[in-house]
């Protein structure tokens, strides 16, 4: 392999007129890892990805991709990179296999080379029997998988995926995850954005959580859960009014409490002790649930619960 570090950003900034979408972020992506950008809509994830994929020139700061300055060396970088866009941009007017062969032509790959490769990739994403279909006949999950296959036509070292599983059913999502893990094993560096916490925990070695154009935290999913939320959470769903005083009395015992419209959340280091106290209150036992802290708790505590669009 070449460089041990595939992407380096220092003070990376992107402005659209007056609006600053990315506000001077620093991060680096190691080779053969899966690196995730998490964040609510409008956090600046896609903008950052577009700068890395040399589709958008940075406004300020430094961005090095595969050892070359992004945008400036766009042509050479893009030759070694694959991109799965957020929006489906397959060519609706040609067949599944032609989508792959024509795309490969833009990388100077002749049909002699690209045709067997396309067949191979179609079976990799379980679409070999859709070879001659038109795009409109494919389901959302199939289109997504075909986009993954297309992004691999130039055998990239770095694969950029912008919300690779948004809108997919669980079966399709798991299939995409399985394929991404297998690519990582083959030595491809993966860079993905998502707002599915499960996806991030399943796939990412390291991730950053972005909010309003800044990086709030960085680490492995496990480190982030350990460092930014309590190990356990007790959820009480729709407690009756007469139990609320009792629940409120428990607040000082928990590390942190959240009262939402439909439930209470107690964040704690000692779930069993707190659970016993909650159970003593006049509550329907099935409305009380003890679970481990999750990436989603980290995410929501850092970015808030309000709608951010």
């Amino acid at each position: 392999m070449s460089d041990p570090v595939v992407v380096v950003a220092r003070g990376l900034t992107k402005r659209f007129g007056q609006f600053e979408a990315v506000k001077g972020i620093d991060f680096h992506v190691d080779a053969e890892q899966c690196f995730g950008f998490l964040g609510p809509n409008g956090a600046g994830k896609t903008t950052t990805m577009r700068m890395i994929s040399c589709s958008s020139p940075p406004t300020g700061g430094e961005l090095t991709v595969l050892g070359m300055p992004a945008w400036v060396d766009g042509r050479r970088i893009k030759r070694r990179m694959g991109v799965v866009p957020q929006e489906n941009n397959l060519d609706e007017e040609v067949s599944v296999i032609d989508n792959l062969i024509i795309y490969a032509r833009y990388f100077d790959i002749s049909p002699k080379v690209s045709t067997p490769r396309a067949e191979e990739l179609l079976s990799f994403v379980a679409l070999e029997d859709k070879r001659d279909w038109r795009i409109y006949a494919l389901s959302g999950g199939m289109k997504r998988r075909l986009l993954v296959a297309r992004s691999l036509m130039n055998e990239p070292e770095l694969l950029i995926l912008d919300e690779p599983t948004t809108g997919l059913d669980p079966q399709a999502r798991h299939l995409v995850w399985e394929k991404l893990r297998s690519l990582k094993r083959q030595g491809v560096t993966l860079l993905l954005t998502t707002h599915y916490m499960e996806e991030a925990s399943q796939l990412c070695d390291r991730l950053v959580i972005m909010h309003e154009g800044r990086i709030l935290v960085e680490g492995s999913p496990r480190e982030l859960v350990a460092g930014h939320t309590s190990p356990q959470v007790i959820e009480v769903f729709e407690p009756p009014l007469d139990a609320e005083a009792g629940l409120a009395a428990l607040e000082p015992v928990a590390d942190r409490t959240e009262r939402l419209a439909d439930r209470w959340l107690f964040y704690t280091g000692d779930g069993d002790a707190l659970l016993a106290k909650v159970r003593a209150l006049p509550l329907d036992p099935s409305s009380v649930w003890l679970r481990g802290g999750m990436l989603e708790d980290v995410f929501l505590s850092l970015t808030g619960r309000g709608l951010l669009e």
Binding site: S55, G74, R75, P85, N89, L90, Y103, Y106, D108, N154
Partner: peptide, 14 residues
């Protein structure tokens, strides 16, 4: 509608 140019712009072409 097809966003084809966006797709081609992620290849070495500009």
């Amino acid at each position: 509608f097809g966003k084809i140019y966006d797709a081609v712009m992620s290849t070495p072409l500009t």
